[in-house]
Every structure is written in C-alpha cells, then in structure tokens.
C-alpha cells in the first residue's frame, strides 16, 4: 500500500504538467473516497472536454433513461491489464479499472456536465461514487450523500421545464448496481456497447475476446431497424428495470424479473403477474402486464408516474420518458391476451 501510495504521489506530480495527463492508478485502487474528481486524472482542463488518452469512450445501444440527460461514458483499464469477455458477452473488468460516466445537458461543445459517477474496481470489489461539477467546470466534488440541483430540460417532444435533478447518494448507486449484495457494472455488456470508431483499436487492444457475441449488436430501443418490437422492448426493460428486477437485485423480493434470463417464465416477466408489495403503485390494476391492454398494466402506470412510491425506477427519474413509455405500451398492445 505504501509503495502504491508513493507511486500515486509521483503520478500526481507528473500530471501537473499539462497535456500529458495520466490516470492515477492508486487513487482508483486505494481505500477511501477521493474528494475531487481531478485526483483521478481522468480529465484535464475545464469540464470533461479533454479526457486522458488512456480512456476509451463508448455509448450504449440502449441506455438507461435519466431525465433526458446526455451521458458521456469512458472505461479505463490499467496498463497491462485486459478485459475478459465471457460467452454471454458480459465483460469482466480487471481490478484497477474504472467506469466514468458524466451526466449533463446539451450536445457537442454545448455539453454542460452536471455530475460524474465513477465505478472503481478495487481489490475489495467495485466502489460507486458520485461527483458534482462546480458551476465554473473547474472540478467536480464528491457528494457521498447525493444532492439535488435545479436543471432546465427540454424533452424532444415538449416544453422546457425546470426539474429537481437528483444526484444519487453512494447507497443509491449500489441499489441499482447491486447483484447479490455486491456492486457491479450494469450497462457495458458486449452486445449493448457501442464503441466509437476512433476508440475501437484501443478497445480491441484491451480486451481478451473469447466470447462469440459481437460488439454492439444489441437492439437500439428507438431504432426499428435494429430489432423487432419485442427485442427492443425487452432491451429497454433490461437496461431500465432489470438492474433491480432480477433474482439477485434490489427488487428480488418482487418476483418480477425483467432480465433476459427470466424470459422463459411469463409470470416472472410480468405477464398476468399480480402485485405483491406495490401499494398504491398498483394504480388499481391487477397485473404488471395485462397483455393487449397497456392502460390496465401496472408497468405503464408506474413508468408514467413521477410520484415517489409509484414511479419506477424508484430513483434517478423525475420526468416521464414519453418515448420509452410509448415503446413499452406498443409492445404490451402487441402481446396476445389469454
């Protein structure tokens, strides 16, 4: 640990020189909660416009909806270490890796970061930490307990509105990123990763490819050419719901499982499944999914709501994802009633 710390300090000194920013491995690996995002050396200069050359950028075929926020995603893998891919396309990131995800609004050069969430793969497991950007974009500060910020959002099909944007606290990070009580990454599975062409050589260089699932072949939820309605709806539910709604997730007790593995059991996926602990979340409906009848489906009721205690997902959403609701409603309409 001492040696690592010394190396870390050395790296910090080096990174003081501009244009040669290097990621600080010991900050990722050592116990504790770094107070500022700049300590990691992921970015140089203002905001997130200049990532370290050691980072690999990617997008997701089907992303989690977060109040129409734009997201900038990077993965960092330490030198000499490599990602392994299993036959299901799940990626096993080596210890020392980090996933860096910045939430903000505006595209291209107009992108203004609000928060950056990091997932750090330490020897003890993954650690999830939220950082909130200062208004001048000079750095982002750790907000272990989360916070709320007023943010102006213009959805694709509506008027600009001001929302209370919620930065999750450390525990809420884990609530979503939890499998069997341990923190794990959610989004970057091989099929759901969309690596920009500029990063593909670097990515290929950092991954041991033993699986058969090609990269980025998963359905794009809002692109009909990318998959059937059923495939796109299930991909949307897998990304937006299944992180909790799986047998080892935070909603394991609900018996509603929306991960790909549950597809064999219709009731577990919500079809004619009665509510268990939904309370007023049921909206007076009998089934999570009433095939052919989205208006009578609890799933749609909860996706359409922004009321705590009703709204799903429970955290990270204060607006309705109208386009996502439309997709799931269309899918439920297409399911045959018994």
């Amino acid at each position: 640990m001492r040696i690592a710390l010394a190396l870390g300090c050395a790296a910090l000194v080096i990174s003081a020189a501009p244009a040669s920013v290097r990621v600080n491995d010991s900050v990722i690996l050592d116990a504790g909660y770094p107070r500022a995002l700049s300590e990691y050396g992921f970015f140089t200069g203002q905001g997130v416009a200049s990532p370290s050359a050691q980072l690999i950028g990617y997008n997701l075929q089907t992303p989690l909806f977060s109040d129409y926020a734009e997201k900038q995603r990077f993965v960092y893998v330490p030198d000499a270490a490599r990602i392994r891919a299993d036959t299901d396309g799940r990626l096993d990131f080596p210890v020392g890796s980090a996933l860096i995800k910045t939430f903000g609004y505006g595209t291209g050069t107009a992108f203004r970061p609000i928060e950056t969430r990091v997932l750090l793969h330490r020897a003890s497991g993954w650690e999830a930490l939220p950082y909130v950007w200062k208004s001048d974009g000079s750095d982002a500060e750790l907000k272990l307990a989360g916070t709320r910020l007023p943010v102006s959002v213009t959805p694709p099909s509506g008027q600009t509105q001001t929302i209370s944007y919620a930065v999750p606290n450390k525990n809420q990070c884990k609530e979503c990123h939890s499998r069997a009580g341990a923190v794990v990454p959610i989004g970057p599975t091989a099929a759901n990763m969309d690596v920009a062409p500029a990063y593909i050589p670097a990515f290929r260089n950092r991954i041991d490819w033993t699986g058969k699932t090609p990269l980025g072949t998963g359905p794009v939820w809002n692109d009909a050419a990318s998959g059937s309605l059923d495939a796109r709806a299930r991909a949307y539910l897998a990304v937006n719901c299944a992180h909790c709604h799986n047998p080892e997730g935070s909603a394991s007790n609900s018996g509603l499982f929306l991960d790909a593995q549950a597809a064999g059991d219709p009731v577990a996926t919500g079809i004619y499944k009665r509510p268990v602990a939904a309370g007023r979340g049921s909206g007076g409906h009998d089934f999570a999914i009433a095939p052919g009848d989205p208006a009578q489906s609890i799933m749609i009721h909860r996706m359409r709501s922004t009321e705590p205690g009703v709204a799903m997902p429970e955290v990270g959403r204060s607006m309705v994802h109208e386009e996502g609701v439309a997709l799931i409603a269309q899918w439920i309409s297409s399911l045959p009633a018994r």
Partner: peptide, 8 residues
C-alpha cells in the same frame, strides 16, 4: 378497506 385495488 382503503387498499388500492390489485393488492391482495
């Protein structure tokens, strides 16, 4: 009974 319908 004031439970929302649908719940057991």
């Amino acid at each position: 009974n004031f439970a929302p319908k649908g719940n057991i």
